[in-house]
Design a protein around this nucleic acid. Structure first.
Length: 274
DNA sequence: CTAACTCCCTGATAGC
DNA sequence: TGCTATCAGGGAGTTA
């Protein structure tokens, strides 16, 4: 579900409520997520520590404590994070809760359990190692046409699959990959190695434009996504091609096509994306 | 090495 | 209505 814009919307919603607060208790429902939850370590490093920053890297939320421990949360496909009065009853698929010193509790709800919750102890060298393994942020200067051209050089891989590779660029998922290539007017099956420099420049511009607009609209809700206050995002109204197979292209009226690439749906306009 | 395939899990929806 | 098959926005591990 959540790609970069959705995680950023969640981050912005949580930050003012979390920064400066102390975690007083960590509740755990017992189900494993993508990996087993290390509840003992979570309690050890989070209980009685104060939250200093709430950041995002790729599709991960990074919550850093005053003891320099770092809580890392990934929302998977159906993950939700929100704040609730501690006394409110728990919902189905609420897996973890972090009770704060103001009576509210941040809760992680994840239907499909593809998400992850990890704790990095203070100064754990595994954290910078993990962060370094991720591709550049789309809004960082390192994400450039030259960067893309270098990683794509000699590759026969379809350009859409390249954009989905988190080592190439962070945070682009299946919805925005289709939207970005539509905006850049590039056919998704094109071999990445054959994309020209001007086309890569369009990809960089389109990536930033689409993600920026999506954040401003509160993210894209197809089915599950809600922000930290439980509200859906409205970027679905601005999607040009994703989920619109057979419907007319908003730019040229030709029927939008749906294909499958590496096991995932891709949408594009055969007219605009020559 | 690259890149596609498979699987983790639940729930919504389509089709019979 | 009720069953089964298919699909879903992520990512890691496996396979070719």
């Amino acid at each position: 579900m959540p790609e970069l814009p959705e995680v950023e919307v969640i981050r912005r919603g949580l930050e003012p409520h979390l920064a400066g607060r102390r975690i007083v208790e960590v509740r755990f429902g017992g189900h494993r997520l993508r990996k087993p939850v290390r509840i003992k370590a979570l309690r050890q490093w989070l209980c009685n520590a104060r939250i200093e920053t709430v950041e995002r890297r790729a599709k991960y939320l990074l919550i850093t404590m005053d003891n320099r421990a770092c809580l890392v949360i990934h929302l998977g496909m159906t993950g939700r994070l929100g704040l609730f009065p501690f006394a409110d009853h728990l919902l189905r698929h609420d897996h973890l809760g972090w009770k704060l010193d103001n009576g509210l509790e941040m809760r992680f709800n994840e239907t499909r359990r593809f998400g992850a919750v990890e704790i990095f102890p203070p100064d754990d060298p595994a954290l910078p190692l993990f962060l370094a393994s991720l591709g550049p942020e789309p809004f960082a200067p390192e994400f450039s046409a030259a960067h893309l051209a270098r990683l794509a050089s000699g590759s026969r891989r379809p350009v859409k699959n390249l954009l989905l590779d988190g080592r190439v660029v962070a945070g682009i998922g299946n919805i925005y990959a289709s939207e970005i290539l539509f905006d850049a007017a590039i056919r998704p099956e094109r071999p990445a190695g054959e994309i020209t420099a001007p086309e890569w420049r369009r990809v960089v511009e389109a990536t930033r434009l689409i993600l920026q607009r999506a954040i401003a609209a509160g993210g894209t809700t197809i089915r599950d996504f809600v922000d930290s206050s439980g509200r859906p995002g409205y970027f679905k109204l601005q999607l040009a091609v994703y989920g619109r197979g057979g419907q007319p292209c908003p730019r040229c009226d030709r029927a939008i096509e749906k294909i499958v690439q590496a096991g995932r749906a891709t949408y594009f306009c055969p007219g605009c994306q020559g």
